[in-house]
Design a protein around this nucleic acid. Sequence first.
DNA 1: GACAGCCAATTGTCTGACAATTAAACAGCC
DNA 2: GGCTGTTTAATTGTCAGACAATTGGCTGTC
Lengths: 249, 249
Amino acid sequence: MSPASTPKTDRSTEIASALRDAIVTGRLLVGDRLPSEAELAEQYGVSRPTVREALKRLAAQSLIRTQRGATGGAFVNHLSYEAAHGQQITTSTLLLSMNAIAFETACEARFAMERACAPLACARREAAHLATMRAELANQSDARLSDEAFCASDVAFHRALVDAAANPVLSYQLAGAVEAMQPLMNMITFTARDRARIVALHAAVADALEAQDAAACDAALTALERYTIDLAGAVMARRAAKAAARPGS
Amino acid sequence: MSPASTPKTDRSTEIASALRDAIVTGRLLVGDRLPSEAELAEQYGVSRPTVREALKRLAAQSLIRTQRGATGGAFVNHLSYEAAHGQQITTSTLLLSMNAIAFETACEARFAMERACAPLACARREAAHLATMRAELANQSDARLSDEAFCASDVAFHRALVDAAANPVLSYQLAGAVEAMQPLMNMITFTARDRARIVALHAAVADALEAQDAAACDAALTALERYTIDLAGAVMARRAAKAAARPGS
DNA sequence: GACAGCCAATTGTCTGACAATTAAACAGCC
DNA sequence: GGCTGTTTAATTGTCAGACAATTGGCTGTC
């Protein structure tokens, strides 16, 4: 009854966990090369395909990268911010797309985090951040911009705000949330009036940041959040009404 | 030169991407059963092991779950908050453990997000949240508590605060950050004096939440952040001094 | 000494097979 | 007829061996 420790887990899962543990606890360091698949297979008493499945699991979490050839093998990855960021986006996008989250909830979380960045950004913003924001503001004022381009510029603007906080953890978490929401935002068609309002609020944010006025920045972001939710709500309602009017299969 | 689209990606990676795309775009819905491995293999013109590697990748991201038996197969997962949360913790822990992030940076991000929760939590906190916080406070005042248990109670306290904000997106993001930091916090040995100070600050947070005073809550969290960073800095300095005094190998 | 070709190690993939597991279909009994 | 136990089929999990593709290093030649 002693080996009842892992009654129903696959061998490949076990091996993946063991290797992950070795990486997390530092027994395997960044850049280290794992034993070859054949060696791992012998070591764990399984076949090569089983080892490969375990390695693929780790690769999916970008914990390792593999390389073919004579000096190839599996190497412990650095897990850059970019990779973490990518996973964050994937996860957030899925949560949103599966309707597990209401738009309002995601929006609220996003602006809450953005307001959390505001004081830091006000304290640390540099000329480059302000310049980026001004440039995107000018961009957004161009009436010929497509909705997609407008949204992309919106993302870039907020990205600059977050980056100004100079905290990479906040950057990757928040950028993930913002980018996950972009597909949804792209579905919204902005009227000229909407755009003017949004640009004005963006300008208020930029001004507050330049003046290093955290309270004003917070207020502008709060107003922007309210407006975004109102807009989205109106779009959803319009869509629902249209769907009700045309009840085709 | 036309088939240069995927010059160096594995087939298993391609297939994993294709399936992931099918899930994200909604072509495969939650609960749907994927074709059996044999069918997928035929469909993509590869062998079963290759398909299996692709499936393991998706399983590692908890996008699918597999089940053996007659009615078994791979099913599109719900991607619960728990799963997203788990991944968040794994990623954050790794980022921290690989020294890619300074403790101060992680701490700053964590408290920034927590302050972002504060207004929401003040507005929405319910009796259960307050009760949990009071219970953990009492727990933390017990001098017989081990450092690990004290830290665990600390996590539970903050978790209650975040949950009071009633926004699952914030919950999973922040809880991930908090739990990722726990191993580091566990390394810190708290003196009785430290604990009293922390408990007092926690009490201030709980009081502010009960009174629905967002500003007071914010202030208490800020003070807690400063104290945490000071403490950690002192511990690190002490450790560095000890390492310098004993310059072994 | 520089360069070209060969070589060995390693991952990526295939084939075929068997074991384990699970639910459904089926036979048998009360 | 209804319930129970058994068989059965479908599916994943694992294995073994083999070959293709890739890539760095080695060797031989000019």
